Simulated assay, not measured.
Amino acid sequence: MKVDWSGVFPAATTQFNADFSVNIPATLQHLDAMIAAGVHGMIMLGTVGENCSLSYDEKLEVLKASVAHINGRVPVLTGVAEFTTATACRFAADAAKLGVDGLMVLPAMVYRSDSRETAAHFRAVAAASDLPIMIYNNPVSYKVDITPEEFAELADEPKFVAIKESTEDTRRITDIRNVCGDRFLLFCGVDDVVLESMVLGIDGWVSGLVNAFPAENRLLWDLAMEGRYAEAVEVYRWYTPLLHLDTDMKLVQYIKLANAECGYGTETTRPPRLPLISDERERVLGVIRKAIATRPVLTV
């Protein structure tokens, strides 16, 4: 199965009203801003999109509105992050009916599956629709690690087309290429190792901070893809304090605070995620505001 996924794919935030209800118009307005800045694809309902904080019906509401609004301008993927394999399969099938272009599938939530169970989960979700799949490997957050050798064993399923690699270990890029060749498209899923990953030959970047700094994300990507590494390093050094926010337990709150500071929505998250307060809030605001004040000139 062939797809044309490459470049910067935001893990888009889901916007909420003050009463924590889903704010569809604000979510769509934010998608427009990122598309206008030149992102290459969109991932709804990932970790940053607070997938597990939405009800099943709310997830479908967000997807339906997003697919219709984007209307083919860029590919739209949805996160599939459910507690059971059966529910993940049901969601994959329902997402396909809404017209999404692909799935970003996580292991089953909460339960720490072994390699046999993990493979069975992914294969079951693949069988539930005709959509291509990006397998999301994030053992730091979700405690399940899919090794390069295990990816090789999954290579016989044609719907598995891409890997979002989020181990925070850039050696995995080379290890996957050495074991699997070019069988899978490789996406970096950790913001503050992306330039290193681009040098090693990734196909795309699933980013969190792109929500607040979409033009700068595109600038960094373009510079690296053009081999203009001295300029890319300069942008990366400016960006890295922000990109570190993507690797914290509170990455959703941090990214949404950056969104608010940059004029892309509010910082409201659903409990159990609470607003940032006190020294932590001031520290993160300091990083964001310094970056805004010193952002690079957007020319390539």
Rank of each mutant, 00 (worst) to 15 (best):
V3L: 10
V3M: 01
S6T: 11
F9C: 13
F9P: 01
P10S: 07
A12T: 13
T13S: 08
N23M: 03
N23G: 04
P25Y: 00
Q29V: 13
D32T: 10
A33D: 08
A37Q: 09
G38I: 08
M42Q: 07
I43N: 09
M44I: 12
L45P: 08
E50G: 08
L54G: 01
D57P: 09
L60E: 01
A65S: 11
S66V: 08
H69I: 05
N71R: 06
G72M: 05
P75C: 00
L77N: 02
L77K: 06
L77F: 03
T78V: 03
T84D: 10
T84H: 00
T85W: 03
R90Y: 07
A93H: 04
G99T: 14
L106T: 11
A108N: 14
M109P: 08
V110D: 07
V110M: 15
R112L: 15
S113E: 15
D114F: 06
R116P: 02
R116S: 15
A120N: 05
H121S: 00
H121G: 04
F122Q: 01
M134T: 04
N137R: 01
P139G: 04
Y142H: 14
K143M: 12
K143E: 10
T147Y: 00
E149L: 12
F151A: 05
A155F: 14
E157K: 15
K159P: 04
S166E: 04
S166K: 10
R172W: 07
I176D: 01
V179K: 13
V179P: 00
F184Y: 11
C188W: 04
V193G: 00
I202V: 12
L209P: 13
V210W: 07
V210N: 02
E216R: 05
N217H: 08
L219V: 07
G227R: 08
R228L: 13
E231Q: 10
E231N: 05
E234T: 14
Y236M: 13
W238R: 05
W238C: 13
W238H: 14
T240F: 04
L243P: 05
H244T: 12
K250W: 14
Q253C: 13
Y254Q: 11
A260P: 05
E261Q: 13
G265L: 15
G265C: 06
T266A: 04
P271K: 06
P271E: 13
R273N: 04
L276K: 07
I277H: 14
R281G: 11
E282I: 10
E282G: 09
G286R: 01
V287P: 09
V287R: 03
I288Q: 12
I288C: 06
A291I: 05
R295E: 03
R295C: 03
P296R: 07
T299V: 15
T299I: 12
V300E: 09
